[in-house]
Amino acid sequence: MAFIRENIKRGLSLPSLIDIIFLLLIFSLVTLNVSDVSDAVVQSNPEGSSAPDLKLPTIRGAETEKFDQRVRTLLFQIEHRNPRDPASAKVLYVLDPGDLENMDIRQAKQAAVEDSAFAVFPPGYLTMPESDFSRIPACRLIRESIQAYKDRMFPGPRHSNSVEIRAVEDTEFRIIRFIMDRCSAYGDTIPRIIVHTLTGREAARGI
């Protein structure tokens, strides 16, 4: 009796192959993110798991976390006068939460406008000598508000004392340096500065 051998070609099915590739891709993407998070956890406890979890206060280094649009301490907001025009002059707003523990950033900015706690950086401020620059209204506002806030809220050195800066990306170093210098003049009384880079999206929304 003659048998007929049937040759069945066993090939890879294309959709299944793509399916597997995408699954692998998603798996690697997701696990990559997870491993970043666990690194951060390990770093926050460098002694390892055997070290007692004492929750000691630490001065935070250059760490980032999502900004929740609340003002908790003295905040200097630097933005363009016309948020849609990057060539327009820069304006400084001094946002002070007052006695409140935190304040919505829109309310704080509204209060700054009402209290005239804002100033425009004049043309040519980058080329001014240091002594002239420190006398412009914006710098005077920075100096006086740090002094007043420090007298009111920071009676002594404390690791949690901080001043915040929220500035558009193209803010020149001179402005930020002036704020840093003024904070640095108080030594450990203001041990850290929190910086937020105001993105184009937030600036355009006028927050």
């Binding site: 280094g61 980032t64 640095s184 041990p191 937020h196 993105t199």
Partner: peptide, 22 residues
Amino acid sequence: VTSYVIRTPLEERSLYIPTPEN
């Protein structure tokens, strides 16, 4: 997933830096 990954860095973040030595 990728749109989430791309969007995250655009969110406004707080960066804590020590006050520089003067």
